[in-house]
Amino acid sequence: MGFAEEIVYLVSTYGVSLFNAMLLTLEITSIGFTLGVLLGLPISLGRVYGPLPLKALLAAYIELIRGTPMIVQLFFIYYALPLVGIKLDAFTASIIAIGLNSAAYQAEYFRMAFGAVPREQWEAALSIGLSKWSTITNVIIPQGVRIAIPALTNELIYLLKYSSIAYFVTVPETVYVSKVIGAKTLLHIQIYTITAVFYILVAVVLTKSAKKLEERVSIPGLVVKGRI
């Protein structure tokens, strides 16, 4: 069989399980990313506008996450937490690990984006009588989120790739399933080519859509100096 025929063979034989695995990869990625936004946004607000002890605590959390590999974090959650009675299945452990990891990075992206909003915007908002909270929600967040889009896109693509760490705790996502198929058929290069194309295509599509989104929500004059 030639390379192309082998690819066709793999797709026709294992297409369904590959497809399911890819869906699982997308699921892990999107849940992880959403968790990351839901946690990262409040973390960044607490880190910038919160009281001092909270600031310190959140800064420590961010350093802790950014200073260690994601896989160590996953193993902690999956293998060490049962020690204190928290037993999670592999899928849940994976999305929690990815979500907690992403929250730290996203908090930093949001923090930098909020920092890029000029101080004068604050003063203008306060001067018409808006509260601090109202200023954050009506002025700082709408501007900051737009500024953060490129960084968040990179984060999403990063998570797409690193959702594959779920392989290490035997979640049947794309890398796991292709490894199994590779071992079964010995068509390693062929199966990995298929999965690599999947990841790269999704990354390209995400990049393109993010560009579109960025253009759609872009506002004349709202540009940042320097990338974050």
Partner: peptide
């Protein structure tokens, strides 16, 4: 775009073929 684990598999398991 490629996950590092996948690239490691390609090199370690795939290239021998």
């Amino acid at each position: 775009g490629i996950p590092p684990v996948l690239l490691l598999f390609i090199i370690f398991y795939g290239l021998p073929s």
